[in-house]
Design a protein around this nucleic acid. Structure first.
Length: 554
RNA sequence: GGCCCUAUGGUCAAGUGGUUAAGACACCGCCCUUUCACGGCGGUAACCCGGGUUCGAGUCCCGGUAGGGUCACCA
């Protein structure tokens, strides 16, 4: 077989040589130790936590080593292409504050190593595959889908590894003339790698993974597809060519790629390229119903989608903070010691990553979120909450008419020695503060058990009568004490606890009744503060309304 | 099924041959407290199993087991 002639037959249009691209995309001029990383999502319309997790590693590695992190769109599968997916991808990444030095941005392409859409790199892939054909490392394969499935069935029956290799690689044996005839007939074909490994006694490859350490895997023997019928590259080819040409030094990807590592290593070696340092990250899992770990699935698990976190309104810093605790386990300790330092000061390193799969824990995310939000200025929280509402909860747009009112609400109890940590994520915040707005009042909760039905109106009307909006916190509370004691409720909860038979209840029960009339709930932050924010008129109005409601019920 | 990866409390996890096996979240109890939240104190709870190596094994080796991944003209 004359491989040169075969290459010309298959790629008559391709006149450039690899050396052309090698000079076009030279080695990057970066300081010693600088890492070049990349994120290569597919525009399928679904971005998940794993993407962000990986993006974060890429970004940290590049930034800390003074290298480059770029974004490349891996759109080689037209069947899965979703319109608008790319914009969504960019939005999500920028929402979570991942910044790229190079590649695709919302303004277009940036950088000297493009194009950064794989779909626009067909010529480059053809050139490199042509080179492989010339060297006898790749060949056209005319096997149809039906033929391949027959082969697979036979292999399954014989308990052999499925795939195209060895004697099953029928097209490999075609003579030049036979290939020529088929091409003349316009028969569709793919280009396959002529793998060198043996299926029976493969050599063992030893690779060092940046996260997992030494890995031992058998060499590849599968004749995998390099170019599809439509001339588009498969992931394998595109990955090797692009990461070489874009001078990527570290490939961070999920562990699901581990098993195709031998293929990639073989390609790097066939091309004569230096392979990058691979870093296979653990997978994100969740606990399934029968208490076993399982991979997150996009159909079953809404929390896998990045959109979920935006819809729920988790602040970007909370998600990043949480992800950090999964990435480097000494992060929480560091954060404790450096509560105010920016995350970028943390000495992140891939060596500190664990290789076992991680279960995502929303509980923990919430806990972290409380602290992160507490550390934020009320103005920032206001903006964050407003942005969320305008994008994901239009119903409450009206809540933002009075900015200082909203800010006062969001700032309740956040100052002082023991600040409250009520705010977790936007959706939760909306519910948490809803009682401040007439359209957000929920159904009334039950009156405390210790409050006698006959006392309700008595207690409230006395409260109204003595209410003075200018009272300070202690004056205000003393009045409640007096009302309680006057009506048979202990002024101090301790008294009631010690001698329950002497009282109907205690001041806490009375306070809860007032809280109920004001907010509809039995739990809330400090009532005095709520009243100050609500204003005198609304405060009194709500109590009167509540009383009228009780009267009508009675 | 073949190949590969992984294995410490419910979860995230320290730990690299000698520890009373850290810490965080969750949970429970107590304290503080007008409710809640916050905070403080305390508690329940773990080295998958079996063989080696060793004076000594969560830690090293081998074998199981379990979970996961992958075996596409998807990435």
């Amino acid at each position: 077989m004359d491989y040169e002639k075969l290459a010309e037959l298959l790629f008559p249009e391709t006149d450039k040589l690899p050396s052309h691209y090698e000079t076009m995309y030279p080695e990057r001029n970066l300081p010693e130790g600088a890492m070049v990383t990349r994120l290569g999502p597919s525009p399928t319309g679904f971005i998940h936590l794993g993407n962000l997790y990986g993006a974060f590693i890429d970004e940290r590695m590049a930034v800390l080593s003074k290298g480059i992190v770029y974004l490349r769109i891996e759109d080689t599968d037209d069947k899965r292409y979703v319109k608008g997916a790319e914009k969504m991808l960019l939005d999500s990444l920028s929402y979570f504050d991942i910044k790229f030095d190079e590649g695709i941005t919302s303004e277009g392409e940036e950088g000297a190593y493009g194009p950064y859409h794989q779909s626009r790199r067909k010529e480059i892939y053809s050139c490199y595959v042509k080179e492989l054909v010339k060297k006898g490392f790749a060949y056209p394969c005319f096997l149809t889908e039906e033929e391949i499935s027959i082969i697979r069935e036979e292999q399954t029956r014989l308990k052999l590894v499925t795939g195209i290799y060895g004697e099953f690689a029928k097209s490999e044996k075609l003579t030049f003339k036979e290939v020529e005839e088929r091409i003349a007939l316009n028969l569709p074909y793919v280009v396959r790698l002529k793998a060198q490994g043996s299926p029976f006694s493969p050599e063992i490859l030893r690779v060092k993974d940046g996260i997992r350490g030494e890995l031992a895997m058998p060499e590849n023997f599968l004749h995998i597809v390099l170019l599809k019928q439509n001339g588009m590259p498969t992931y394998h080819l595109a990955h090797v060519v692009d990461d070489h040409l874009m001078r990527t030094t570290h490939v961070v990807r999920g562990a699901e790629w581990l098993s195709s590592l031998p293929v990639h290593l073989e390609l790097f070696s066939k091309f004569g390229f230096e392979p990058p340092q691979y870093c296979h990250t653990p997978q994100l899992m969740k606990l399934s119903d029968n208490n076993t770990k399982r991979k997150l699935s996009k159909r079953l698990d809404p929390e896998l989608s990045l959109l979920y976190y935006r819809q729920e309104g988790f602040h970007k810093d909370c998600v990043r903070e949480y992800l950090m605790t999964l990435l480097n386990s000494d992060y929480e300790q560091w954060r404790k010691e450096n509560p105010n330092k920016p995350l970028s000061d943390f000495p992140f390193s891939i060596e500190k990553m664990k290789s076992a799969d991680a279960l995502i824990d929303l509980n923990k995310l919430c806990d972290i979120s409380k602290d992160v939000l507490l550390g934020k200025d009320v103005n920032e929280i206001y903006e964050f909450f407003k942005d969320w509402a305008f994008e994901f909860n239009r119903d409450i747009k009206g809540w933002f008419k009075d900015e200082s009112f909203m800010k006062a609400i969001l700032n309740i109890g956040r100052e002082g020695e023991k600040p409250r940590k009520d705010l977790i994520y936007a959706k939760q915040i909306a519910d948490h503060i809803s009682y401040f707005f007439e359209d957000g009042l929920r159904e009334q909760e039950d009156v405390p058990e210790n409050i006698k039905d006959d006392d309700i109106l008595v207690l409230l009307s006395e409260y109204l009568k003595t209410y003075d909006h200018s009272d300070d916190r202690s004056e205000w509370f003393n009045k409640i004490r007096e009302i309680s004691e006057k009506n048979g409720y202990a002024g101090k909860p301790k008294d009631f606890k010690n001698e329950p038979e002497k009282y109907k209840g205690h001041v806490g029960d009375v306070s809860t009744l007032i809280r109920l009339s004001l907010t509809g709930r039995r739990e809330s932050p400090d009532l005095w503060e709520i009243q100050q924010i609500l204003g005198e008129e609304k405060t009194k109005g709500r109590i009167r309304n509540y009383m009228t409601g009780r009267e009508q019920n009675a």
